[in-house]
Design a protein around this nucleic acid. Structure first.
Lengths: 349, 349
DNA sequence: CTGAAAGCGCTAACAA
DNA sequence: TTGTTAGCGCTTTCAG
């Protein structure tokens, strides 16, 4: 059952080179290269012979050699804050679809919410392994003594505008959507609010919180009507916030969470404590992940066009790479407030 | 606002090569290479000068050149059925952690549940871009006229045993765990069952279904007590199954779904239809994803050690790459039945 | 311990 | 349209 295990890589079959094809097809390696990359610059006859040799041998160009010579890798680095959040998974799908159409593949740099992992991807980007960077983190990853922005690589931001970065950014209307959330809750009759925060240095968080306050202010409600709990967008933060909420004697009647994960965890925690949603407390999330539709009650949330965010980001980056990009610019896609069963009038006391 | 956009890549700063370091440090390129790769084979003095030159210039070796010469890429291809399923996201974390420790990075090949995307990754693997493959799909991806197994690359299977593949496989105890599920439900008093199936050609599905029947048989219950709905592990399949369940006049009292996503979607759909869980129907899932703990009621499910699955898979693959692998072997990790609020006694009629 | 030299496999001028 | 010729930047014998 045990075959010759060692050096399987070495001994392996794969060693058909462009030379072999050239010999087999009776042309030069240059012609082989052209026949594969620019078929139009080669005679039909030569092309046919090359293609036949290729299919007979199963030849695949060695990318390392190609990259070394052509100075591009057809590879994009996508830096993601946390792959476990399904929100990002769907953005990745949009990105991947768009990149694939252009012949690019991607390396996913998952920070797993740990900033210290940034250095690893700064290094990867520095090593010339990728032609561009898609940054979903809302920050400029740094490490190895530099920031990712200083590498001179084409870059584009998705989900979050990184202040001071002169590259394209595809974002969602955090502020306008949060104003809508405020309006919705005020219209239902709420006057005291809880707010589950994301990291305070995150631009999405900043915008969402500001928009929420702005919407309340428009209704004549001051920021002292809002209690803000710290968090980092993920499930655990929602539990923490709920614990603090439950410990209060005079609780707010509505809670806005800056992410669906926090909203879902918050809701579950208060339900487990015996409260009713929305009878005792209304809850609104942000993102519109699939699971928001499968919790009980269904979550009211701001739906982000995730796939389109990804596609637009990838398109913008490809333009930058092609040199056709216009550099700094912000494309804002609209979020949509989707009403679920988690919001209702405040309890009448 | 618009700087010199074109050919930013060309003009860019990055062009420090090993030559520059050699000159700067007053040694040969060979010594630079050694100082970086095998510090022990270089005098302390030379090493120090090289390192200083490196940090002064910010030199990073060009990987394409390194790969071309060293014939390895330090890159692993991880083929995933569907990145949007959080189950896989956490396995990826385990894989990534283990690979990172060994200096490897990974390319994620997301099939997005579409078999026609396999070819893209077969091609990628063929091109010499990766040193090994981790296959989470339970099948042998194929395309470009070959299967991924024929490439001669080191490979390991995670989550699912691929029949006939002589490579290491890290799997979970599908069958034993499903027997436990059956025992649990029978003990509660259930006698008629629904089963939300995965793809019938998927080995996990086969094992889970077989285990479930086996567990029931041990209690004297025949397979005619089980109605099996088709599915593909994801949320939508759970909705479909629930619709068929709801349309029945004489419904089973307990439902076992071969994945948490299906179980969650099933539960939400029957709740929306006005049923009570577990009073009207008990539901059990498989996987133990985070969201299983945040739906209402909490899902009873078989928890898979996801991170450890990933880590073990990565370790096995690294052994194969190092030539220390023992080839075919199956490592089975135990699943754990975690009781939630979604299972209870059948309704007394 | 160190340097010289030979390529890894491919593409891009430059000629023909 | 095609072939010849130089390397891309690095690692690795092989001598010294």
């Amino acid at each position: 059952m045990s075959l010759n295990k060692p050096s399987r890589r070495q001994s392996g079959r794969k060693s058909v080179t462009i030379q072999d094809i050239a010999v087999r097809a009776g042309v030069s390696t240059a012609t082989v290269s052209r026949a594969l990359a620019n078929p139009d610059f080669v005679s039909a006859k030569a092309r046919a012979r090359v293609l036949r040799a290729v299919s007979e041998t199963g030849y695949t160009p060695n990318v390392a050699a190609r990259h070394l010579r052509a100075r591009r890798s057809m590879m994009i680095l996508v830096v993601v804050p946390n792959l476990a959040n399904p929100f990002f998974a769907e953005i990745l799908r949009g990105i991947d679809d768009e990149l694939a159409e252009a012949g690019y593949d991607m390396i996913i740099g998952n920070l797993d919410n740990r900033a210290e992992r940034e250095a690893r991807y700064v290094k990867l980007a520095m090593s010339g392994q990728v032609d561009g960077i898609l940054n979903l983190t809302g920050r400029v990853p740094k490490g190895e003594g530099r920031t990712m922005a200083e590498l001179g690589l084409p870059m584009a931001g998705v989900c979050a505008r990184v202040p001071g970065q002169q590259s394209p950014h595809i974002v969602v209307s955090d502020r306008a959507s949060s104003i809508q959330v405020a309006e919705h809750l005020v219209r239902l009759g709420h006057r005291r609010f809880g707010y589950c925060s994301g990291p305070k240095d995150n631009i999405n968080e900043v915008e969402r919180y500001a928009g929420f306050l702005e919407g309340l202010a428009a209704a004549g409600i001051g920021s002292d009507a809002v209690i803000r709990w710290p968090g980092e967008f993920h499930l655990v933060a929602g539990i923490r916030a709920a614990e603090r909420f439950l410990a209060m004697s005079d609780r707010p009647t509505a809670v806005y969470a800056a992410s669906d994960e926090m909203a879902i965890a918050f809701m579950k925690t208060v339900l487990t404590a015996g409260l009713k949603v929305p009878d005792d407390v209304s809850i609104v999330g942000f993102d519109g992940i699939d699971y928001a539709k499968f919790v009980e009650p269904t979550l009211t949330t701001v739906h982000q066009p995730r796939q389109e965010l990804g596609r637009a980001g990838a398109r913008a980056l490809l333009e930058e790479i092609a040199g056709k990009g216009s550099g700094e610019r912000i494309i804002e896609l609209p979020g949509e407030l989707v009403l679920g069963g988690s919001t209702g009038p405040p309890p009448s006391r």
